[in-house]
């Protein structure tokens, strides 16, 4: 089955390089990536619902990962969306356990190979998280 990813820049975070490069490379890995640009959790979950996303990818370097990241998972689960939620960007190591506890399946730092993100997605899509 074709994997569909909804990719968003979280909130007001301005750096789009990482999100777009990962989107293009996931496309190269054979996935369909809906690029949303900047969005807040409500709109990200709305898009995931409409698109039937298997994966929600969140990118942030702006330091809003703890305030907005868990909100995406919470809203998604409330609406019955079981998509895998993953995050990438500059995120302090100490915060990763907190994000995982909140239902973010994995956090990818600046030097992650996109190939390994794709592998992670393939291994985890379809298994309901959280």
């Amino acid at each position: 089955m074709q994997i569909k990813v909804v990719m968003a820049k979280l909130g007001l975070d301005i750096h789009w390089r990482g999100a777009l490069v990962v989107s293009r490379m996931l496309r190269d890995e054979g996935m369909e990536v809906v690029y949303l640009g900047n969005q807040f959790p409500e709109q990200i979950v709305e898009a995931a619902i409409q698109e039937g996303a298997d994966v929600i990818g969140l990118s942030t370097l702006g330091g809003n990962h703890l305030t907005l990241g868990p909100k995406v998972v919470k809203l998604a689960r409330e609406k019955g969306v079981d998509a895998l939620v993953i995050m990438g960007g500059v995120i302090p190591e100490d915060d990763i356990p907190l994000l995982k506890e909140a239902g973010i399946a994995e956090v990818f730092g600046p030097e992650t190979k996109v190939e390994s993100i794709a592998t992670f997605i393939r291994e985890h899509v379809g298994k309901t998280i959280g």
Binding site: G11, L12, I14, G63, N64, L66, T67, L68
Partner: peptide
């Protein structure tokens, strides 16, 4: 980005 601190879009970013 042109939002006041009490704007809903500012949430989580004020003074960060």
């Amino acid at each position: 980005r042109g939002y006041d601190s009490d704007d809903p879009e500012a949430e989580g970013h004020v003074g960060a």
